[in-house]
């Protein structure tokens, strides 16, 4: 009930505010290359978190293994570009496609499972993918990793040359664009009839079936879209850091941190996970690291506990809402 007294903004407004902040951030950081690169990572994480939250927050299916789709996307693009000479831009697309296909391989059997078993099945899938990346040496170079991955080629717009090799800022704006694209996909998906089905499945999947929702198909679409977006971000990551090993591409970080960011920012707001990613990165960089150089990661756990206990709906939880239909009647 206290919610009524709080500022309540629409999803759209919150999305605009966060996007505006993202666009302004490099200026606020005076284009410091170190901080810019920190926030490139934050945006990659934010985009993956938005995608993760489509599955978990909208459709109610928690995944513990989004690293699987991130890694598949990263390796797909890296292999296509380094071994077969594809354009990295095509690599981003292929990374998404393969991330999505990979999710179907695990999703079809895993959707028979419920709750934690589904989440763990995906975690297991991520481990299997990591092992494949380690052992298919002819394709992935195994534990040596793939080195010297081409950066995104410069874009030439008229006389303007946008270079991704040297400039962190251009990378920052590309990842901001990708993040925004992922957000829009999720935003419009939730507003569609499919989004209605996902919310219904989230609410009660048996009842949803009772009113004619194809539950399996709905979950599969949520997972595939989520994994596709995650795969694209993985592919971008490959061309940004320019080196991949099974340990970095399938790092548990990409499974855990999207959850942390989502819980932090609030799962009921679509932009919440992005806000969460920015806040935890900011806190880590400007607060924890300053004071506790070695143990700063510990604070995530502590902070998460605090959030779960005191604000279970996250930072933006009850303050941001989708405009519910029927509200003004």
């Amino acid at each position: 009930m206290g919610n009524l007294t709080r500022a309540f903004v629409s999803e759209r407004t919150a999305g605009c505010i966060v996007t505006g902040f993202v666009l302004a951030l490099p200026f606020l950081l005076s284009f410091n290359p170190y901080y810019t690169s920190v926030f490139v990572s934050a945006l990659i994480l934010g985009a993956v978190a938005i995608a993760w939250n489509l599955l978990a927050g909208v459709c109610g299916q928690v995944s513990f293994g989004h690293a699987a789709f991130f890694g598949i996307g990263a390796y797909t693009s890296a292999v296509l570009v380094t071994k077969w000479g594809f354009s990295p831009y095509l690599g981003l697309v292929a990374g998404g496609v393969f991330g999505g296909l990979g999710s179907l391989i695990i999703g079809i059997p895993a959707f028979r499972l419920r709750g934690p078993y589904f989440a763990l099945a995906i975690l297991g899938f991520a481990e299997v993918m990591k092992l494949l990346a380690l052992n298919l040496t002819w394709l992935t170079e195994g534990s040596l990793g793939i080195m010297n991955i081409a950066p995104l080629p410069p874009l030439e717009v008229g006389s303007l040359k946008i270079d991704f090799y040297a400039s962190r800022t251009t990378n920052y704006y590309v990842v901001a664009l990708l993040m925004f694209a992922v957000y829009l996909v999720v935003y419009f998906l939730r507003r569609s009839n499919l989004g209605l089905a996902m919310s219904a499945v989230h609410g009660d999947d048996e009842t949803a079936a009772g009113i004619g929702v194809n539950v399996f198909r709905t979950k599969a679409i949520a997972l595939t879209v989520s994994a596709t977006c995650t795969g694209v971000m993985g592919a971008f990551y490959a061309h940004y850091v320019r080196f991949l090993s099974p340990d970095t591409a399938f790092d548990g970080y990409w499974s855990v941190m999207p959850i942390v960011a989502s819980l932090f920012g609030g799962m009921s707001a679509l932009i919440g996970p992005m806000a969460g990613a920015l806040v935890i990165t900011g806190l880590d960089e400007f607060v924890f690291k300053r004071f506790f150089e070695t143990g700063h990661k510990l604070f995530f756990g502590l902070l998460l506990a605090v959030v779960i206990v005191w604000a279970p709906t996250g930072l933006l939880g009850n303050r941001v809402g989708k405009r519910s239909e029927g509200d003004k009647r």
């Binding site: 209605l196 089905a197 919310s199 219904a200 989230h202 609410g203 009113i211 194809n214 239909e325």
Partner: peptide, 17 residues
Amino acid sequence: PFPEMTVFENVKAAAVF
């Protein structure tokens, strides 16, 4: 009911699907 959906959305989901 689907608790996070309004009454309207609850019924709309049924009408749509």
